[in-house]
Nucleic acid binder design. Structure first.
Lengths: 131, 131
DNA sequence: TATGGGGCTTCCCATAATGGGAAGGTCAAG
DNA sequence: CTTGACCTTCCCATTATGGGAAGCCCCATA
């Protein structure tokens, strides 16, 4: 199977597959006589694993850790769980930050008439309304 | 006032002040005889405006729009409000994505024993548990 | 067999916003 | 005058992804 088909089958773009190989996240693919990368079902499964982990927000570095655990038959499930819990915590932190922004913005929006006059408490606040 | 003081006063790093100037977000600062950038209270206020808008999650491009409206005495407050509402919506979208990840991960974590045995439903799921 | 279209290769560039650091000029205090 | 803190510009790195060019390859069809 060529890289295009592997991309289709895994949901990872050909571009990213090459990138993952380049950065060592996955081992170099086999090559056909003419230099084309070749993939089998096993490789596609790895790619899907990566895709899924990325979809859950794991950064590539953590994906590498997950892959290592996956390959390690003598892993402790506690290690996997730790990674997942850390990711949950990271998401929670980021979400909290953004919710704080949202709250502030929502307040500001409520104070703004939103008509064709120039007066706007939003701008006043941004420019340091409360010194 | 030199760039370091302006950075202190505005909460924007000297590095970023130069960058904002380079990208045209702010006009070129005045220069002292020896080439040092110089800033007055007005410039610092602009920097604080930028800082605050960035803190609310506005991307630089939108900050530029906000700055333009701020400078435009004949703006309509509706335009400002629109930008703020769009930002709220953008935050909401991103938050929703991340919450979905969080929910999935939380489910997975609950299914994992987290002991020293290797069996781990998290890995099973990542590797395509549901075909 | 020749030709064309689509797929593959590598290489370079760009993104968004920020920080790190080097090499060298400047200023103020001692 | 020296020293240390600050400024200048320039280059590099980050994270993960996409775009595109130049050139080779494969297969089907005329």
């Amino acid at each position: 199977m060529n890289i295009g088909e592997a991309a289709q089958a895994s949901g990872v773009s050909a571009k990213m597959i090459r990138y993952y190989e380049e950065t060592g996240l996955i081992p170099p693919a086999g090559r056909s006589g003419s230099g084309y990368r070749t993939y089998g079902p096993k490789e596609v499964q790895v790619l899907r694993f990566i895709r899924r982990a990325r979809d859950l927000g794991f950064p590539m570095e953590k994906v590498a850790d997950l892959l290592a655990l996956w390959r390690d038959r003598s892993r402790a499930s506690a290690d996997v769980k730790r990674l997942a819990e850390a990711q949950i915590a990271a998401l929670e932190a980021r979400i909290a930050e953004m919710q704080a922004m949202q709250v502030t913005l929502t307040h500001l929006v409520h104070t703004c008439a939103g008509d064709d006059r120039p007066d706007c408490p939003i701008l006043v606040d941004l420019s340091g309304g409360r010194p």
